[in-house]
Structures are given as C-alpha cells and as structure tokens.
Design a protein around this nucleic acid. Sequence first.
DNA 1: AACTCGGGGCA
DNA 2: TGCCCAGAGTT
Length: 211
Amino acid sequence: MKTEEEINEILRILADEYPAPQTELNYKTPFQLLIATILSAQTTDRQVNKITTELFSKYNNPEDFLDLTPEELAEEIHGVGLYRNKSKYILKTCQKLVDEYDSQIPKTREELMELSGVGRKTANVVLSCAFEFDTIAVDTHVFRVTNRLGIANSDNVRRTEEELMKNLPQDKWSSAHHWFIFHGREICKARNPRCGECPVNHLCDYYKELD
DNA sequence: AACTCGGGGCA
DNA sequence: TGCCCAGAGTT
C-alpha cells in the first residue's frame, strides 16, 4: 500500500499528464447523464458519444423516450452494443421516473439502483457527476488501475470504493476518477499494459513485480 | 455463481 | 478472424 505522500505524488503526475477531459460532465442534464451512463455498460464512452448527440437532440426527457416502442429505441441506440436490453432498461426507467419521481432524477443511491439498468457504478456516476455528491464510481478501469498502483488493495469493487474514499483526498475524488479511467484505457490496459510509457511506473506495485 | 446480451479493437 | 474487453439483470 502507498503512503499519503506517494499517493499525492501519483495524483500530481496524473493531473499533469491528463488535463481531465471529464466526459461525463459534458451532458447537460442529470437525465442525459443517466441515460448515457446506462448506455455505456460494457462499452467505451467513445461509442456512446457517437450516438448521444443525435439521440438527445430528438429525445430529451422521459416522456420523449416513452413515445418509442422498444424496437424503435433499440434502432436509435444501435452501435452501443447490448442494445435490445438497454432499450428495455431505458424505457422501464423512464416509466418509473414519470410515475414515481415527477420526471426528476432521484438523488440517493438506493433509489437510483432501483431503476432498471442502473447498478452501483451507474448510480455513483450520477451522484458524483450530476449532483456532486461525495462518491467514487468504480468501474473496471478504476478498479484495475488503483489496485495495480497500490492505491487500493482489494478483490472486490465495493471494498475498492471504500478504500479509495479513505485513501484519496476528497477534493481529488472527481478528477482522480477521470484520470484513472483515461490511464486505464490508454496505458494501464487490462492486457498488454504499456508500463514502459507509464508516467507513474516508478510508484507502481504491479510494475515492481513484473520482472 | 454462471450465463446472457452486441460490437469494437487488437493479436 | 477469433479472443478479450466492459455492467447489469436473470436463472
């Protein structure tokens, strides 16, 4: 595990390396962020971004989506993968938003996770990016990167979330989330990680154990 | 706990 | 061109 100084050094280097694109924050409303995050399951947000501009120009609230049949919506979101499931989840979620939340997005993790297609990761993204609540959304990139670096040490996403909230300074939670995701995609990849190009390899537990 | 759902990226 | 990757729901 890392000392506070080592963690701050890692964060400093990553901040310098990745001027946080913060892609989730590009969505204009909590509703857009929620839908985009449901769409992003098992895909990159690059794929999601390809379709959301047009999608949200046509449908921008739960009522708009409820005008569509599952088949029509599936057609609209073609390209993000798992589109039939995601179409059903989104329509079910929109119906619930209309029926139970006056078309607003609920602000607690428990309520968000009751929505179809919304698990812990999606709920945390909405809480931290749309409502700026103090949460860290742990997807597989964040999980892999932080465990390799030694900022977390856990075989379980739920515990990693707790460890990160304990080990990272709170004012860095939001930006660190984006650094880890970007780093995980470009450098610290699941397979064939490019450790030679990694700006924090001298501070990485995984890199130390390589040879 | 294992399986399903689509497609993009890379070996 | 086949294998790996990325969440949530279902069985």
